[in-house]
Design a binder for these strands. Sequence first.
DNA 1: AGCCTGACTCGGA
DNA 2: CTCCGAGCCAGGC
Length: 109
Amino acid sequence: MTRSAGNYARIFAIIRRIPRGRVATYGQIAALAGLPGHARQVGYALAALEDDAVPWQRVINARGEVSPRTWGDSHVTQKVLLEREGVVFDRAERISLARYQWKPRRNRT
DNA sequence: AGCCTGACTCGGA
DNA sequence: CTCCGAGCCAGGC
């Protein structure tokens, strides 16, 4: 393994804190994990994820949409899971970040 | 070391 | 608002 294994753990720890029905961007996760600018590494971590305890479906890109996969169809599952949590996608398959983005503060809707 | 790729993001056109 | 290009970091060869 490499030193990044610890980073992955931090990333997953942050993602686990995302409440149901909320979403967070890759960049946001990275920053919260103490790795500002490592948005891509968040994507890597999720791609290698095999832990069901991590709500990976709540992580989306800065545009407010589910990032398309290069291979596989997990993005389809992701959308379904989010809708099941109450997240609404607009006609362009996008989510209103202003409304669903998770803000790790004492304030929650 | 260099080179290519990627579940990203930002700024400019 | 959408489309492109450049910057970014880490991983595999």
